[in-house]
């Protein structure tokens, strides 16, 4: 009955207009529709309910219902999902859809419930983190040398840049815009939607379409909250999550071309890495992948992932 009607609180790390918000809105409308208006949810944008990492703990304890956050903020709590954050594992949106919605995705969801006490119910596809900088067009690893690049405090990203021969600067997100503006750092990497939403075109000139990380941002629900729901409501939540995932993929397909045009109009120059990115890929995968085989569950897991998207296996 209406007595157990819920208004779920959903923490959203990014601002309005972001892919995260699109997933959230997709979820809320599907939830309202599937539950016949009984349940709804409120989005708290811009990290108002705490940093993305904090929300994982809060959901695990049951003091927060749901959160939409970057996968690399889930990895510290459930290391096996780190496979999606390794450089050059995912090379297209189709790869991402296949991996997250297939058996690999199901297994990682199960792991996350056990490890972190949260359940992934939808996937946001935010796109590749492309490189921007204020100094020069970057097409090769050699072009990258001498640039000061901001990265989040993330081991994999730091190691990747090191594999390319530069030592990146870890900087808090809150300081990044000012850092780029004043030139404390020359560049950064983020998906197109973020670059547009944060108006990085005001302080950056060159974009390079590197594909080292495809940004995936799951919608998680507190497993404790989930288990307290009736079986019927649980199914509604899962179905609403599927609808949100579909909405997210559609959002990315619609948006990315549109945003590229906006950035060009704002005077940015967009280029692709030379030789289909081969040099970047080789350096990054050789240096970074082996360091993380253990944390993602062994080299077999890595090969299972590669097999699923039709790529050659790696050996020790």
């Amino acid at each position: 009955g209406m007595a157990d009607a819920k208004n779920f609180k959903i923490a959203v790390g990014d601002s309005g207009g972001s892919s995260q918000e699109a997933t959230g809105l997709g979820f809320v409308s599907a939830l309202e529709e599937l539950s016949g208006g009984k349940h709804t949810a409120t989005l708290f944008l811009n990290g108002q309910l705490g940093s993305e990492q904090d929300t994982v703990n809060e959901a695990a304890i049951g003091t927060l219902d749901m959160s939409i956050l970057a996968i690399n903020n889930v990895t510290p709590f459930s290391p096996t999902v780190g496979v999606f954050s390794l450089p050059y594992v995912i090379l297209s949106l189709e790869d991402a859809e296949k991996l997250t919605q297939g058996p690999i995705g199901a297994e990682l969801t199960e792991n996350t419930i056990n490890d972190a006490g949260v359940r992934i119910i939808a996937w946001t596809y935010t796109g590749f983190r492309v490189l921007t900088n204020s100094k020069k067009p970057v097409k090769s690893v050699a072009d990258l040398q001498g640039l000061v690049i901001r990265v989040p405090k993330n081991e994999i990203m730091i190691d990747t840049y090191k594999a390319w021969g530069i030592s990146p600067t870890p900087m808090a997100w809150s300081e990044t815009f000012a850092g780029l503006q004043t030139g404390v750092v020359d560049g950064q990497d983020n998906p197109y939607t973020t670059i547009n939403a944060m108006k990085f075109y005001e302080v950056q000139k060159y974009v390079t379409n590197i594909r080292y990380i495809f940004s995936i941002e799951p919608l998680i629900i507190s497993e404790q909250v989930f288990q307290e729901l009736s079986a019927e409501d649980q199914q509604i939540i899962l179905d609403a999550g599927k609808a949100a995932t579909a909405a997210s993929a559609q959002f990315l397909r619609d948006k990315e071309a549109e945003i590229k045009q906006i950035l060009l109009d704002e005077g940015m120059e967009i280029s692709d890495p030379e030789n289909n990115e081969e040099e970047f890929i080789k350096l990054a995968t050789e240096a970074v992948w082996p360091k993380f085989y253990d944390s993602i569950g062994g080299i077999e897991k890595m090969n299972a992932v590669l097999a699923e998207i039709g790529r050659d296996p790696v050996s020790q």
Partner: peptide
């Protein structure tokens, strides 16, 4: 209670 019962067992320093 948080540190000994609720904290995620993997939650470590990133660097």
């Amino acid at each position: 209670d948080f540190i000994f019962n609720k904290m995620n067992r993997f939650q470590s320093s990133q660097t």
